[in-house]
């Protein structure tokens, strides 16, 4: 990967330039993440469950020798948990120094956008929206939410429990 990938978590905040986004579906909704934080996309394989973990952590899988935690993004965002099948995909994303896998239904598109296409998150009283959505895009009448990946892993919640 290029050097920019080493610091991908700062990318979504920097919307001044044109950037590429990977769009994906979960149920009927569409979301996207910065392509620079995506390392690879692979098919779903059964994960080893982690005990005493939040419900949205599906477990860990072996990614060529690396132990990769899988986050059910749908459950993480407060939607019903996914029931993974062989057609589900895992988006392997780099968040800071960590690599995690995001379980989503399917990858739908690659979008090239400039910052004027990204609208601020509508002021709705949803915690999910405030925590995870950086902005929304309108593409062909569809609403695509831009996800901020740095909040996805439950870093402090576990310690506070």
């Amino acid at each position: 990967m290029t050097e920019t990938a080493s610091n991908p978590d700062q990318r979504p905040t920097d919307l001044a330039r044109a950037c590429e986004l990977i769009a994906f579906r979960m149920g009927t909704r569409e979301f996207c993440v910065d392509i620079m934080s995506v390392r690879e996309i692979r098919g779903w394989t059964k994960a080893t469950a982690l005990p005493k973990s939040p419900s949205f952590v599906r477990g860990v899988v072996n990614l060529r020798g690396t132990v990769l935690p899988i986050v059910d993004l749908s459950a993480r965002l407060g939607f019903p948990a996914a029931e993974p099948t062989a057609r589900h995909v895992i988006i392997v994303a780099q968040i800071g120094a960590q690599t995690i896998g995001l379980l989503v239904d399917a990858v739908s598109d690659i979008l090239t956008v400039t910052d004027d296409l990204v609208h601020p998150t509508p002021d709705v009283a949803s915690d999910m929206a405030k925590t995870f959505v950086r902005g929304v895009l309108a593409v062909d009448q569809r609403m695509i939410s831009l996800i901020a990946l740095d909040q996805v892993l439950p870093v402090c919640e576990q310690d506070a429990a």
Binding site: T48, L50, P51, K52, S53, V57, V60, G65, T66, V67, L68, P69, Q98, T99, I100, L153, P154, V155, Q158
Partner: peptide, 16 residues
């Protein structure tokens, strides 16, 4: 393999 590298400490589990 450390779980902390990409995740965090899991109670009752030393590593993977």
């Amino acid at each position: 393999k450390s779980l902390e590298t990409n995740y965090q400490h899991v109670p009752g589990i030393a590593a993977a």
